[in-house]
Design a protein around this nucleic acid. Structure first.
Lengths: 116, 116
DNA sequence: TTCGACGTTCGTGAAACGTCGAACAAGCTA
DNA sequence: TAGCTTGTTCGACGTTTCACGAACGTCGAA
């Protein structure tokens, strides 16, 4: 496949981050990744077609919220927690707390083999 | 004019708040209102037509970010700082800080008579 | 080499968004 | 009353977003 452009730290734009977090599916993905562990594409369970999931993961990546790593034909995704913290201090934590308060994105989860 | 529906505290949805903050003009409006003071419609200066400004103010209101008060034929708008704090603790402060860091919405300002 | 699994990209359509100007409604002011 | 000001609503337009299935490219396994 190819490039998978990730924005630099300084290129992360607030409005794009907000836009990325304005969709329940994407919020759910962030929620699942909140523990900081890297997850394989296949572990993610969301009520959309795989092309749509790919789209959402791209939006998150383009906004700078996640980092995608490729290994063979598989993809692994992580939250860019440290980068986010460096760019917009406190934002991620507060948003994660708000996600729990509002219970958004609960439709997204992990496959049963939630181990590693 | 009419109703101007404001959501209750518990009705404020995270994804809508995020969506409201995904546009530079609206972020600029929030920035201008960040000091907590009530502002008259006429004090706001933004590079869009008045119908567009009206639209943006409605989005902010519908998302629960601002409160609009009518007095005669004029409108006054305030940030719902306390409500936001009660619903999603810390969110507003962190977002306001992020707005400054990214310098979003600087195209929005106040008329020269910034007094009161 | 053939096959299957994996994820991206493409093509498409429906819906939502941002923008504008024009028309409208409601309240002041002359 | 007539006119002005203020802000909302409406319709139109083009862009973007979200969703899907299908096709494609890449890799590991048989």
């Amino acid at each position: 496949m190819q490039k998978a452009h990730h924005p630099e730290l300084g290129e992360i734009a607030l409005t794009e981050v907000m836009a990325a977090l304005s969709d329940p599916i994407r919020v759910g993905l962030v929620r699942v990744l909140a523990d900081g562990r890297e997850r394989g594409w296949g572990q993610l369970r969301a009520p959309v077609a795989k092309s749509t999931l790919s789209h959402h993961l791209r939006v998150l990546r383009d906004a700078g919220l996640t980092r995608t790593r490729q290994e063979g034909t598989r993809c692994y995704v992580t939250l860019r927690g440290d980068d986010l913290q460096a760019r917009f201090p406190g934002l991620l934590q507060v948003v994660l707390a708000a996600i729990e308060i509002d219970d958004v994105g609960s439709q997204v989860g992990l496959r049963d083999d939630a181990d590693r």
